[in-house]
């Protein structure tokens, strides 16, 4: 299938989504002409023999349109990942089409996607694969080398050597070798009240999109309570538990880890925050207070930061984080 065919197909599917269309067309659909005759079929030109992995890994969103080397000719095919899932209505023969479409506006879930025989429609399938690809890209995408320096962060790396090891060995993502431990010891304050850790986690895109805005608002909020933050740490190949090791090394009262979340198919830029009181290696997972869904469509990073600063104050006052804190609040 070549690009024109794909274009034509996407255009046709998009047209088919038009809710206001006359019912009559649906009721007696005539046998459709095949879109391309066999004789006209030309195979797509191979794009590039070998695609550099680090290349794919760079800007996730701009990839489809901007990276000429990757796509050959850009801009000819509709970017299906730009379609609003809430408006992507493909269900035929619904009793109340407008009602269904209205309900669908309330969720980005893949509802009202119709079917072709027993299978997905082409657009549904393509979109699913596009979103899945974006999610995978967000994992493999590296936070740039100069990111920590640009933002005044102390940069370290867990024991993981690369992304593959990071994904296959979660235990190595929670600790540091001697060299990195020394960097932390040398550059971060000892026994601070609060230590912030920024980690790439499973989405470097999320970390880059949100961490600095969030951190700045946390800094403001803590300042209001008379808590000054020292330097913050950037951890490459970071698991949430890396914060516990930071606790061991610095002896901080509270560690606050800002880390990219495992992607869903709706957004690849969602960040979480894990706050632990008196962190140390082996601390129970239930001792963490979590704020998740920090992204532009969820809680905006700046506002989340202000909220997190408040949470940290509460945790310091109650001397407990995680499940214990929530239980106390409920009483």
């Amino acid at each position: 299938m070549n690009k024109q065919e794909l274009s034509a197909m996407v255009a046709e599917i998009l047209q088919g989504m038009n809710i206001g269309q006359v019912q009559a067309e649906e009721q007696c659909s005539p046998l459709q002409e095949p879109m391309v005759k066999g004789s006209d079929y030309k195979p797509t030109k191979p794009v590039r023999d070998k695609i550099d992995r680090e290349r794919i890994a760079t800007p996730v969103c701009g990839l489809a349109r901007n990276d000429e080397k990757f796509l050959g000719d850009p801009g000819e095919v509709e970017d299906i990942s730009a379609l609003d899932l809430r408006k992507l209505y493909l269900q035929e023969n619904a009793q109340d089409k407008e009602g269904f479409a209205r309900l669908k506006m309330k969720t980005p879930a893949r509802l009202a996607s119709g079917r072709a025989g027993a299978r997905y429609k082409t657009l549904t399938m393509l979109r699913f694969r596009a979103d899945h690809a974006a999610a995978q890209d967000a994992v493999f995408f590296q936070v740039p080398e100069d990111y920590p320096r640009k933002h005044g962060l102390v940069a370290v790396q867990t024991r993981c050597r690369d992304k593959d090891e990071y994904l296959t060995r979660p235990d190595l993502g929670r600790c540091f070798d001697g060299e990195n431990e020394e960097i932390i010891r040398q550059n971060l304050p000892q026994k601070p009240v609060v230590q912030i850790v920024v980690g790439d986690g499973l989405s470097s895109a999320a970390c880059q999109a949100n961490a600095m805005d969030c951190l700045a608002a946390i800094r403001d909020g803590l300042k209001l309570k008379g808590i000054e933050l020292g330097k913050s740490l950037f951890v490459r190949y970071c698991r949430v538990g890396a914060g516990d090791a930071v606790g061991d090394i610095t002896g901080c009262k509270v560690v606050c880890v800002l880390v990219g979340e495992r992607q869903g198919l709706v957004t690849d830029k969602s960040m979480s925050c894990y706050i632990t009181y008196e962190p140390h290696t082996g601390v129970s997972e239930s001792a963490r207070t979590v704020v998740s869904n920090i992204h532009a469509q969820g809680t905006p990073a700046v506002e989340a930061g202000a909220h997190i600063a408040g949470l940290i104050q509460t945790i310091l006052k109650r001397k407990v984080s995680g499940v214990g804190l929530h239980l106390e609040e409920a009483l």
Partner: peptide
């Protein structure tokens, strides 16, 4: 209107 009052408020006060 948008969700940013806490961040804005603490900036104003600071």
């Amino acid at each position: 209107e948008q969700d940013l009052a806490k961040a804005l408020g603490q900036m104003l006060f600071l």
